[in-house]
Nucleic acid binder design. Sequence first.
DNA 1: CGACGTACGACTGTAAACAGTCGACTTACA
DNA 2: TGTAAGTCGACTGTTTACAGTCGTACGTCG
Lengths: 219, 219
Amino acid sequence: MAGLTAPLLGLEKKSLREQALAALRTAITSGELEPGRHLVETELSEMLQISRGTLREALRQLEQEGLLSAGPRGRLSVRHLDEKEIRDIFAVRAALESLAARTLCELPDRQHVTQSLHKAIDAMSATADGTLEERIESDLEFHRTLCRLTGNETLLHSWQSLEGSIRMSIMFAGREKGVSNMSVDRHRDIVAAIDTGDAALVRKTILEHMDTAAATLVS
Amino acid sequence: MAGLTAPLLGLEKKSLREQALAALRTAITSGELEPGRHLVETELSEMLQISRGTLREALRQLEQEGLLSAGPRGRLSVRHLDEKEIRDIFAVRAALESLAARTLCELPDRQHVTQSLHKAIDAMSATADGTLEERIESDLEFHRTLCRLTGNETLLHSWQSLEGSIRMSIMFAGREKGVSNMSVDRHRDIVAAIDTGDAALVRKTILEHMDTAAATLVS
DNA sequence: CGACGTACGACTGTAAACAGTCGACTTACA
DNA sequence: TGTAAGTCGACTGTTTACAGTCGTACGTCG
């Protein structure tokens, strides 16, 4: 019975709160709920067919993820990201992923690490001709894997807290700029650097990658 | 009428949710709610004299801050930190504060920055003979200020998301180890490094500071 | 004409009630 | 005696209802 993970676990029904959370995240990053838009609880709750109480729990979570900003009297609106904020987000992201990469260098079996990362890169190649959304997702998947492989749960959690903001940055700034910034080769460079085990090189590679990405979005 | 900020804003009553949040944070970090303890919503809500709905919103927030961990069926318990997790937390903290310090180096007016930081250090000196809690608070206040002064809201937010975990680490691991790790001098070194504007030096100083702190807690 | 007041509408804050699920304990039966 | 079915209690998930607050539009009085 061991090793039968995913398929059987399909029975576990996600709570409405989680479903609402996912739906709202998607709605926001897809632009269906445009930045600056005021969110009215009663409206949303009947759109999503859930009660306000349940909705509010999801909203709190989104608020803390930085996708929503609170105005006076608890008034929520979709966060608007200006160029400075995007730069700031990517600076934090760079710091986190830099830590991740450095940590991976010091791991005993880099074998498994680079193998997993190559798999993620292959997934990116597969979506290279897909929609913007698909390419963004596989790109983020790579970077999330980078953090997960460190085994540092706190690091992964911090990164995921930022993930929504990152996705928003790319989607909005990227729509006009015609982002092609998610090159597969760049990611191979990162893995190669990790493979060498040279922490300084890895750090440098990641920081450059982030700088490039951020510059593409705001320039 | 301009410039009359703080005193007049005293009227703003915090919502019950925020009060509950603060109360629970305190209860957890003070050890009143010991690690591993199961939290029962109905119990807490009547302890705090608030409804479950309001409480649940606060719990979601604490969950995301990493102070609570979710078991099966949404069962919440106070998170227990082992030594690896403490090291992981401090690694992320180091990455964030390293970014903060580096950013401060590149700021136009380091005058104002170092001035504010010296003020925070003075506050630390003032509580040097106080209780463990007081010293921890003034220590965290210094590091929070470090992040705030960068002007990078995302950085500050990420750091604050970690703050509860940091406080927990110090309180629990520190209780037995008799933490004296919050030396005022160490912090002066950091400010001095920032004052030089040498990013590499600053980074090194911060990382050493974090290493020392983490080592004190887990060794 | 302008300042003040007032009634109404729109939302959020908060509370209380209902429903479903899991575990523990008990009981019946082989 | 051991095992399976059944019942009870304890929680969480979710919904519905109520209260309070702020803005707005309109009306009144100076």
